[in-house]
Design a protein around this nucleic acid. Structure first.
Lengths: 234, 234
DNA sequence: CGCGCAGTTGATCACAATCAATTAACGTGG
DNA sequence: CCACGTTAATTGATTGTGATCAACTGCGCG
């Protein structure tokens, strides 16, 4: 059984029969480990299975001439390529940030159980809708906030998402990100991302040593970022 | 029967029974007209029906203190609030740009037919996935392109989407947008959006008089914008 | 021990925001 | 039919955020 939080989310949808629930529990899958920077899939690939993040972080990204733009991060419990069930081709690279543990579930199995049960289709659909809502927030973040609140918003979002899968400890969490990754997600240069992080530190809103981030004044950080987490829940 | 292109898209999904197809054709709906600037739904609303755009344009947007950020445009054939079937609350305002004609289809009906047929669920799911792909492109657009290619990309996207529903005439199309709307979508000031449009005109890539836009050198515009339309198709 | 990468810092430059006017287009009412 | 108000588009001047270029530091690792 892939990630338990994912299973719990899927099961929480009403209308699932005992059978459906059993199909979720007994989902066939193979576990695979990916090295830092390794690509699970590249733009143009047509994966034959969906990836469930069990541990670690992934990014969806594209190399645009000189810059890299990251369009999303994926954390444990996410299925970054669920849409390939309908649109087989990956539009962007899917890369492991740091080491990650991935459960691969064959398309064939998912297609089969989804075709047989409308309730299961209703359970999986929201998994893509959540990320749609996140994309909308990113558009707002990139289009309307300047560097400081923009970076703050990203941190708040990651913390909130980690919290939902139990990976946040009192405002503290671990990320494999480099400042380059943060810059690529926020559409900033590394230099400016660095300065912005320093400004957050200077204001005593966060601590960030190595791969450990601590939101020491989470409420004030969320205020600065104009962050409201409701979009992450259903 | 709401928008014919939408119906055609939905019907093109394999595995639909005669019954399913009939349910699509005979979808109950009421037609409503919205005035320029009027809101179909506001942030926090819980609509009881889904809106199918029959004519005109909508924007999803949010007033952020001083600025407005538009996160998406909707054109005929789109269902901007299909996700409210799963997440009942609107996260942003849905506004009519110019006058628009909307078909409202009750949630209750959609829920009923989707609950009974897994195939229908598979037909509607991609309607949200297309917009997810569009969001990803917007993130890249806002995060990694500067004003000129950014605005060009938006124009290319709108043209390509209109083309898919037969509303593009030899590179020419009609939009009710003001330059303010374009600016709000691109994360630019009106002044700079204006200058950027003028630069596109100066380079003889577009003509834009009143509400009529003409991509007189579409290929060169797409080159400038680094636009590839594959993300709009399935 | 040295190489390389991540992070930090400083100096300079450019794109785009802001502020401030001006012009054009369009309705409406006198 | 013209005066007026309103909204959209245009232009110029100035300011500032964030990019770029260029060292330099500290640390982990082979």
């Amino acid at each position: 059984m892939p990630h338990q939080m994912l299973i719990a989310r899927l099961r929480s949808v009403t209308g699932l029969s005992e059978q459906d629930q059993a199909k979720l529990e007994s989902m066939p899958h193979t576990i695979k480990r990916f090295a830092p920077g390794e690509c699970l899939a590249r733009q143009g690939d047509r994966p034959v299975s969906c990836a469930v993040v069990m541990g670690g972080f992934l990014s969806r990204q594209r190399v645009a001439s000189d810059r890299i733009q990251i369009t999303s991060f994926y954390i444990p419990g996410d299925i970054p390529d669920l849409h390939t069930l309908h649109f087989p081709e990956m539009d962007r690279d899917l890369r492991s940030i740091g080491t990650s543990i991935i459960a691969l579930v064959p398309h064939s199995y998912l297609r089969e159980i989804l075709a047989k049960s409308a309730a299961l289709a209703h359970a999986f659909w929201p998994e893509t809708l959540i990320h749609t809502a996140i994309y909308r927030e990113w558009i707002e973040n990139l289009g309307s906030r300047e560097a400081l609140p923009r970076l703050a918003h990203l941190l708040c979002e990651i913390a909130a998402r980690l919290e939902l899968v139990g990976l946040l400890n009192n405002g503290r969490f671990h990320v494999p990100f480099t400042q380059q990754d943060i810059a690529d997600a926020c559409g900033l240069s590394t230099v400016h991302a660095n300065r912005t992080i320093q400004e957050l530190r200077r204001r005593k809103l966060i601590e960030w040593n190595g791969h450990a981030v601590d939101l020491i004044q989470r409420d004030r950080l969320e205020l600065l970022a104009d962050f409201r987490p409701s979009y992450l829940m259903r």
